[in-house]
Design a protein around this nucleic acid. Structure first.
Lengths: 174, 174
DNA sequence: ATAAACTCTGTAGTCACGTGTAGAGTCAAG
DNA sequence: CTTGACTCTACACGTGACTACAGAGTTTAT
């Protein structure tokens, strides 16, 4: 695995890292931003970054702006935006539209989702706690496989309801 | 798409669905259990179900037991077990070992994870709420892409912290 | 008899977000 | 000149729990 080592700049250069870099290679950007080299290329492929300039030998040469862009992406991710949403926001902004209203709407939606998810998780937590308590009373229950599980009542017979990660739910949940 | 229609039994048969079926075809099992046909075959491939008998023409013929097994699987999923864990539990049970202690341990672990996750989500919820409030004060902030996002302070600069779904972490939940 | 619905096997695709690898070229230092 | 780190492209792989499909055969209803 690549030890992201920065041989393109001198040690002195790296030491006073406040000097503005006008053309950074991908490793440098990775180091500055904390985003992996592969992820940077992936972002570019995904349309999140736009094509950087290239050196004669084909190396990507980034200007400082990319760091701001990456900071934007990370903040948006931090706020729960998917890369897809981020791509839309950036593309809107580049078309001149102010995406802030959409952004607000997305955050509001995300907020509702998180609320819902927390409620689900808390329900699940109570369910698990109750189950463990029951099991402690019961000791070891008889059953085909594990009486503990077999004897447990489900609140909701849907097999999706206990998932730790939410399912994709693209078609039916019948 | 296949409309899981049950032509193997008469309507009368389906109406008094309490009569024990000794050999059900896959569609019937799907209908009774609510597990899709593809999922049933997938479970079999994954070692969760074991090979059913076959008709002369190669159709799977299930006995009633499969419904209990599927109920077990769904309950276990409901409790947060992965199919992998369920497979282990079943395999232990079939080897004669009582897996209940392991089951308890898994549930306890899952419980801790859920707790942690709830706390994270609540933090995230507060963060989003605070952000929205700030944004309402600000109106429409200037910025390269969306000043709202750009002006938002991240609690934790890691890009992973805001994910709605937890990032891979396939080794262990540290 | 024929059409519709079912079933079979085997393989590949989905979702998000990247990571890993192969094989080649480039660059700076000793 | 060689070594080693870096970069390039293009593709495969990883996660979990399924879904989708192709192309064949089978069963049931009319």
């Amino acid at each position: 695995m690549a030890i992201r080592n920065n041989t393109a700049t001198t040690i002195a250069d790296r030491t006073n890292r406040l000097s503005p870099r006008t053309s950074m290679k991908i490793g440098e950007v990775s180091q500055e931003s904390g985003v992996g080299v592969e992820a940077l290329r992936f972002y570019e492929r995904s349309g999140l970054l736009g094509r950087p300039a290239r050196s004669q030998s084909g190396y990507r040469l980034y200007d400082e702006g990319v760091l701001e862009r990456l900071a934007f992406i990370r903040k948006a991710q931090f706020l729960g935006f998917s890369l897809d949403e981020i791509r839309h926001i950036i593309s809107d902004a580049e078309k001149g539209a102010s995406p802030c209203d959409d952004v607000r709407a997305i955050v509001r939606r995300r907020l509702a989702e998180v609320s819902e998810r927390v409620k689900e998780m808390q329900r699940h937590h109570r369910e698990l706690t109750r189950t463990l308590e029951e099991w402690d009373e019961v000791g070891r229950a008889p059953g085909n496989i594990c009486g503990l599980i077999e004897g447990t009542e489900m609140q909701n017979p849907s097999p999706t309801s206990g998932r730790v990660t939410p399912k994709k739910q693209r078609k039916k949940t019948a």
